[in-house]
Design a protein around this nucleic acid. Structure first.
Lengths: 257, 257
DNA sequence: CGACACCTTGAAGAGGTTCAAGAAATGTGG
DNA sequence: CCACATTTCTTGAACCTCTTCAAGGTGTCG
């Protein structure tokens, strides 16, 4: 249930029109997210060619879609700033959040196989993404081996991530799921320079619940239980992890010897 | 709990040694699974080059692993005959079946990102796979555009498939899960020339349960319930789908108007 | 400041799990 | 080829986790 279905203000910047000075800094070779979304160890000339990958930047307002199920696929998107969720829907309208994406992560891989997207990608806060035409990625990755390898790794990483989510959904109990979720989030945020034990949730209890296969009430209750146990401090979207080891123990219960 | 951990009889055929006459027919260009695992619309010369992708064939006995979590990754595998399951394990030993694979499907994509496998692939019946060194795939897909596109599609398809499993695990009830599972299996078998409404399960109730996030007893009970309702006939591994529409209705409950 | 979305908490209920026992199929070795 | 051991499957009954329904509280944004 998107708050805003289509937003005409979702800008699609045309390079050299309104952007000018900005476009200079836009190059991947200068991007501070390079190690997150680009291959390492490229030569100068390879780096310059990869700069061409990003056709444009695009801003996405909070609550609006970057792409939607059924839309034609032609680009991958690298997140520069902001936070997204992706979700799939069943015929009868239930939907399942399949992931939360943050800066440096790539979205749109679902569209490659059928030339249209099979999930929705919705910004959970105002965001900016690099638009990378997939044709161009394929073209360039034929010539730059490191890019080819990188594209393969990104897709493989997503497959492995989803394997982990299947493990979570298929075999963990509510507390384990939420603990694993928190640890995963904070770890990814930490890799981006944020605190190791504090975070602000960008998503609602309902979205967390959808991702974890739980109802929002269960998520809320489980947060409360963690707080009672002194494992976390929770105040709405703000979460402080007081005892990370306890969370870890919840995810991987100690085998009683 | 593998029945046989390492089996010295898992043969690794060396081309030109013991195979001779067989190797001639081994070419992808002659393979009757071509439309399942190879790109379409290739020129004669491209086809010949792609034949080189398959280094060797490998036989895998029922119950033995094709590869295991932690093993070095260097090949993708295309199933020629037989049936596999893949599964991931959590630290504390629980494991989750992440998929069932049949002829024409590709396994091993999980290994690309970290250069080692992160799941187990176990044969559920005697099987034979084509071993495709990933280096060679990357090399060749730089030159044959259709192959490059094909590799991307295979990976994207796997991502989309896993999205669907997440939807199943996160939002469906037991009956819906089993109905979806049966329909998916029979549909894939039908695409391979098997019956539209009969199948022999290659996996145990426990493996089905693991895949569907249910206990084996629940799987068994749900089968029994479907049988009582006249939707399927079940006798151990043998399943006959009497009323496919009813199964479909279970997966996508009609919205009461 | 008021409306709306979001979050929390309680109580009752349902779906699935756990534990247990027995039946059916499968495989093994004599 | 049969007897026996093992694995797999089915079914019942009690239990537990999570859901559902409901109400009230908190925060946020125009």
């Amino acid at each position: 249930m998107p708050t805003q279905t289509s937003n005409p203000h979702t800008t699609l910047e045309i390079p050299g029109v309104a952007v000018s000075a900005e476009t200079i800094k836009v190059a991947c070779s200068n991007c501070n997210l390079r190690e997150l979304c680009m291959p390492m160890g490229l030569s100068e000339s390879e780096l310059n060619r990869i700069d061409d990958l990003v056709a444009v930047r695009r801003k996405v307002k909070r609550g609006t879609p970057l792409f939607r199920n059924g839309e034609k696929f032609s680009n991958l998107f690298a997140i520069r700033t902001g936070f997204f969720k992706t979700s799939v829907a069943s015929e009868d309208g239930r939907d399942q959040v399949t992931g939360f994406q943050m800066a440096g992560e790539v979205m749109g891989l679902d569209g490659i196989v059928n030339d249209f997207h099979t999930c929705d990608a919705i910004a959970l806060e105002d965001a900016e993404v690099c638009v990378m035409p997939f044709d161009r990625i394929e073209e360039l990755s034929r010539e730059v081996n490191a890019l080819q390898r990188h594209v393969h790794k990104i897709m493989s990483r997503e497959i492995v991530r989803e394997n982990g989510v299947m493990l979570l959904l298929g075999s963990m109990r509510a507390e384990e799921r939420l603990a694993a979720f928190l640890l995963n989030l904070v770890q990814r945020l930490h890799a981006r320079g944020f605190s190791q034990n504090e975070l602000v949730l960008r998503m609602t209890r309902e979205e967390i619940g959808s991702y974890l296969g739980l109802k929002l009430e269960t998520v809320s209750r489980t947060f409360s239980k963690f707080a009672e146990d002194g494992i976390v401090e929770v105040k709405q979207r703000y979460v402080r992890i007081v005892n990370p080891d306890a969370l870890q123990d919840i995810v991987n219960p100690k085998v009683c010897s």
